[in-house]
């Protein structure tokens, strides 16, 4: 196992100086739910300003790892996280780090669109409001507008900001949720299968959006669709049975996987 880990890290080291700096650095991260091991010694370096895709069969631990990054595992009773997980060199699991502060800089988008049952405006404004990011009503209006613009939703909802967020279509709701996440200007955006509940057209829009957001954020996306991983990500990590099997450039993973398990999974032999 140590060999395997160093191998992956070596591979990362090979990215060279032109690559963006490392944003998230994980070492030996293990997660257990009620004593049942869900994630085994995952070590990974995720670069900033790019899209990293986590792929792997169901129950392989990719979502679990994602939830470690904003400590959403804290909300699950019986979850135990060990190992070192650093964002910008700061230890995430450190006692001195408040999860509220952490989550303000690590946004998350869930599998099913989950807008608050409030107006579109309030959905986006909620984060800035509770964190006191807007000094005035005008400030807040500006944040809402720019967030909705970044999420590519402004055109569609500009004239009905007071309609409930739940009245939008599924794809629009998911973009609203992304707008809500970027309204507090996070550094990392975690996306847990963001397109699995959407039709192909809405999916295409979200993917386009992810591609645009890449310029400013470190985006980590869990996906079941290998085509999606290939389309949107620059790096891909393959998880299997709670371990990180392989991590590298997306084109390398899909064209030239080193591990036979990766090979089997992407060619559809299992999973």
């Amino acid at each position: 196992m140590p060999d395997n880990q160093s191998h992956i890290l070596d591979q990362n080291a090979g990215f060279g100086e032109t690559e963006p700096p490392i944003k998230v650095a994980a070492r030996d991260v293990c997660v257990a739910y009620d004593g049942k091991q869900a994630l085994n010694h995952v070590s990974i370096d995720i670069p900033d300003r790019s899209v990293t895709a986590f792929i792997g069969p169901s129950g392989c631990g990719k979502s679990t790892f994602l939830r470690c990054l904003n400590r959403m595992n804290d909300t699950i009773e019986g979850a135990r996280v060990t190992g070192s997980l650093k964002i910008d060199g700061a230890e995430v699991n450190d006692k001195s780090i408040d999860p509220v502060v952490l989550r303000a800089s690590v946004g998350m988008v869930f599998q099913k669109p989950n807008p608050f049952p409030k107006s579109i405006y309030d959905n986006v404004a909620y984060g800035p409001r509770i964190h006191g990011l807007a000094l005035s009503r005008n400030d807040l209006d500006g944040i809402v507008e720019s967030s909705l613009k970044k999420a590519g939703l402004w055109e569609e909802v500009a004239d009905r900001l007071n309609d409930p967020g739940t009245s939008l279509s599924g794809g629009q709701q998911q973009r609203l949720v992304i707008a809500r996440a970027i309204a507090i200007n996070p550094e990392v955006i975690l996306m847990d299968e963001p397109c699995s509940a959407l039709d192909p057209i809405a999916t295409a829009k979200i993917e386009e959006l992810i591609d645009e957001l890449r310029e400013n954020y470190c985006i980590i996306i869990v996906t079941h669709s290998m085509q999606q991983a290939a389309r949107v990500s620059q790096r891909t990590a393959f998880f299997h049975m709670g371990t990180l099997v392989e991590f590298g450039r997306t084109e390398d993973i899909f064209t030239n996987p080193r591990d036979p398990r990766t090979q089997d999974y992407i060619t559809g032999r299992f999973g």
């Binding site: 959403m72 909300t75 502060v101 989550r103 303000a104 946004g107 869930f110 608050f116 509770i130 996440a181």
Partner: peptide, 8 residues
């Protein structure tokens, strides 16, 4: 989860 994820 949505509320917690935006830092509430």
């Amino acid at each position: 989860q949505a509320a917690l994820a935006v830092g509430a």
